[in-house]
Design a protein around this nucleic acid. Structure first.
Lengths: 340, 340
DNA sequence: GGCGCAAATGTGACCGTTCACATCGAGTGG
DNA sequence: CCACTCGATGTGAACGGTCACATTTGCGCC
């Protein structure tokens, strides 16, 4: 029967020390794997820790070392989608593996107030680094304005903050999708873009336009959407009032789904009447009707690399930059040559 | 021009005190909104804080109060799906509003080791409460075995840990869906269930069986799936080899999607040949082809209430239990009476 | 056998807050 | 006019670790 620590408080390093018959510093050394500790004492200390169910007090450690080992994730409302949450999950996993903790702040809205509230929330926890998964332009403006003193990384390349960016090459992905449609023989291709202030939406749109112009295909102005299936549906209905296109490149899978809904509902067929290609390759895309041709992004890998980069920054041991992640075109049944 | 704090360290309460010409305790009182502080001193202190860009050191505060104001979320790999991540988002929001922080641990796998690692990760951060969104039976077994000393809540009712549970009434939802099919005239209904060790899967299955037997409809054994669209697809193909059913109740929308994929691919029609109803009402469900009849759960509300319950537990000011959240049947185009 | 040196351990201060308690001054009632 | 109360503020000691430095111990070597 071991003597409990006096107060209701949890056992401290000194309680352990007393019971093991050593000084508190020795216990600390065991905790930190200091090399010069005799094996026998180490074992004795560890055993007492076990008995006492001792857990190091993170607050105390944090206080003296002024390191929180905490990483903050700033996520936009879109964080509930498959892509972002896969990345968050991978981030948490990678961080934990490296001995870091992860805390999240979800942005309710994207107004400047919410953004700075979110950042503030993270900063007040003394996070050592921040991952931004809220790829709106104004989020970066806000970050720049607040002159954040901790390292941060964003999952999307910004053009503004190149150093901190890591991303799937969205432009290349969009070109892949567009080229696929052009090679199938389409000449009248619409682009259903994402919200204009989203970095990714912008990149995908640029990729689309670049490929179209590179292949000398005339383009019409992209339609600016909001990422939702509902918008894809409404846009599709609108578009179908004048049937002057044979293919649509949607900048995400959800909008592509809504679009196909509108097309099928109008009694047309995909891909015979209209080809559709999406972006992201969410797990459901393979089972849409028809199964969606899309561009796959490795969200998990993105999350992992992002932590790699960030921790490299924090420890100031610059990790070699491993380059962008290349997206991959997944051809399924929603695309075919145009019928004439 | 204000004198900076000597070392590279951040300004402390004492730095503020010195510059404001008061004691450190007075600064502390301002920080904690102590009533008996003269308005003028309060303002002076606040101004110095502003000048110095002072931020209270959470570690120090944590150390002395032994309160972390941190809530841990234990999420399963399924946390990347719409439902769970919506709940997490709502949890974070609600927690933040109450002055709490949220940290997450994602379970890589559901083996006992991962589970206790995840819990350990949270506990080592001295979380004051835990929300479990990993509704496998064994997670609860692990929790029970570890005799966790902090309050916790789970988003799914368990039967085992009733006190800590808060949930959408899955059984009622499943009965709603099943009754809908029966009322349409279906008598041969299959159930595509979730993994057997998932609390929710079990509840939905029980609801299905209960309603079937209440209405005297003969049942066949449910098919145990894994929540994925891929499984729904394969199960559908298998099922269609013997076409002895007119309706399927899938225990989530993703499997319903895969199922419909298999049905349409086989040249059959939904709902004319087979009716399908899902569960969850993910945002895409309205744009599946055909738009899916399903059971809506308010994930965000779930998250909010969950924090309400948990914080009530932490502050020991028992919040009146507000009862389960009722799910709602959303009828769309994937269900109709059987064709004879 | 004493010396030196490294390994193993101990000592006390300090990190930035809050807590318990002390102090100080202004009003107030007898 | 003095004791008393109460509002406003100050003082010093925790909290539980780590850090810098001091001290002891063990051991090889001349």
């Amino acid at each position: 029967m071991t003597m409990e620590t006096p107060k209701g408080r949890a056992p401290s390093i000194r309680d352990v020390a007393r019971l093991a018959g050593v000084s508190h510093q020795t216990v600390s050394r065991v905790l930190n794997h200091h090399p010069s500790i005799r094996e026998s004492t180490k074992e004795r200390v560890l055993q007492v820790m076990e008995e006492l169910q001792y857990r190091p007090n993170r607050a105390a450690r944090m206080l003296v070392t002024s390191r929180s080992r905490m990483i903050g994730v700033l996520a936009s409302a879109a964080g509930v989608h498959y892509g972002p949450s896969s990345s968050i999950s991978a981030i948490e996993d990678a961080a934990r593996r490296s001995g870091y903790y992860v805390t999240v702040a979800h942005l309710g809205a994207v107004d400047p107030v919410s953004i700075s509230e979110g950042l503030d929330h993270l900063l007040s926890q003394a996070v050592e680094g921040i991952v931004v998964i809220a790829p709106q332009v104004r989020v970066f403006d806000a970050i720049a304005a607040m002159s954040i003193s901790v390292p941060f990384v964003t999952l999307q390349s910004t053009g503004i903050l190149e150093d901190h960016a890591l991303s799937v090459d969205q432009i290349a992905g969009a070109r892949l999708a567009t080229r696929h449609l052009i090679e199938l023989g389409h000449r009248s291709i619409f682009h259903l873009a994402g919200p204009p202030d989203w970095i990714e939406a912008d990149a995908r749109m640029r990729g689309f336009l670049a490929e179209m112009s590179a292949q000398d295909v005339p383009t019409t102005a992209p339609i600016l959407g909001d990422w939702t299936a509902g918008f894809g549906y409404r846009a599709g209905r609108e578009l179908l009032r004048v049937r002057d296109f044979t293919a649509v490149f949607s900048s995400n899978d959800q909008m592509a789904l809504g679009l196909m809904h509108a097309i099928l509902e109008a009694g047309l067929r995909v891909p015979e009447d209209v080809s559709v290609v999406g972006f992201d390759d969410i797990p459901e895309a393979a089972h849409f009707w028809p199964p969606l041709t899309t561009v796959r992004q490795d969200f998990a890998e993105l999350g992992r690399r992002c932590i790699e980069l960030l921790l490299g920054d924090i420890d100031e041991a610059r990790i070699p930059y491993r380059g962008n992640i290349q997206p991959e075109l997944i051809v399924r049944a929603s695309t075919a040559g145009p019928a004439f």
